[in-house]
Design a protein around this nucleic acid. Structure first.
Lengths: 128, 128
DNA sequence: TCTATTTGACTACAGATGTAATCCATCGAG
DNA sequence: CTCGATGGATTACATCTGTAGTCAAATAGA
């Protein structure tokens, strides 16, 4: 029962995010999306796409002379993996300290709070 | 207003955690603490201590022939840094999706929920 | 058909990271 | 005083990452 966690580096995650937002995309489109937010050279992005391909995080489908790229790794799975990693590495595996942390540092907007409250209600209702 | 974020690698964080738990400690004590949880060679741990020293994350104080190591970087600062990093990298900078994520994956215990509710109440009271 | 261009494939290369091994000064046991 | 053991300092080295550059095949114009 491997949780199929492919490791995605910081730079690669920018590419994945572009693909999660929309897929499939040609490399040209991806380059377009990332130019501005990053100052990466087109070649750099191509390299990242290839690395992601090698590790199975994305897949391609030929479209004439070019490729159409699509994410293979699911965003939710990645988020789960990264969250758990932070939790274990930084907060000893426990959620409460993490939440306490966010709140103490006032990183929660009013909207976050409202959202949170809704969430909790939902969870409690479900649990009951 | 730099948030003085020293980058700590995964391996280094294990050493920091040992020091945050108790300080100061000799390298021998640290090696003792980490042997078991990790299968690192003593030399490896010494290397990590030196790298942490170089980057100012810890400090030393001579004690005869040996050193006593203490954390210099504060755990809270590091946690803040790492949390923000996860948030930005993985959740587009917003807390709510992160929380939604944890809840969806049922990683919140009843205790976490209670804790959370208390936190929210406290925050709202303060904000008002 | 010949050629400049475009796109992907392969190569490059420095700095970070994981994981030690070796070197050197000193201390404690003979 | 002499020498092995200890602890820190320095060096090593394969990978991983960030960031491109070069090569080669196919295409689209001239």
């Amino acid at each position: 029962m491997k949780n199929s966690s492919i490791a995605i580096t910081e730079a690669e995650s920018r590419v994945m995010n572009a693909l999660w937002k929309q897929a499939p995309q040609t490399s040209e489109e991806i380059v377009g999306t990332l130019t501005g937010p990053t100052d990466w050279h087109e070649k750099t992005i191509k390299t990242l796409l290839n690395r992601l391909l090698s590790k199975g995080a994305i897949s391609v489908q030929r479209d004439g002379r070019r490729y159409l790229y699509s994410p293979e790794l699911r965003r939710e799975d990645w988020r789960k993996h990264e969250s758990r990693s932070l939790l274990d590495r930084v907060f000893g595996g426990k959620v409460a300290p993490l939440l306490a942390h966010f709140s103490q540092h006032e990183e929660l907007s009013a909207k976050d709070i409202a959202e949170l409250r809704k969430l909790i209600d939902a969870i409690e209702k479900k649990g009951r």
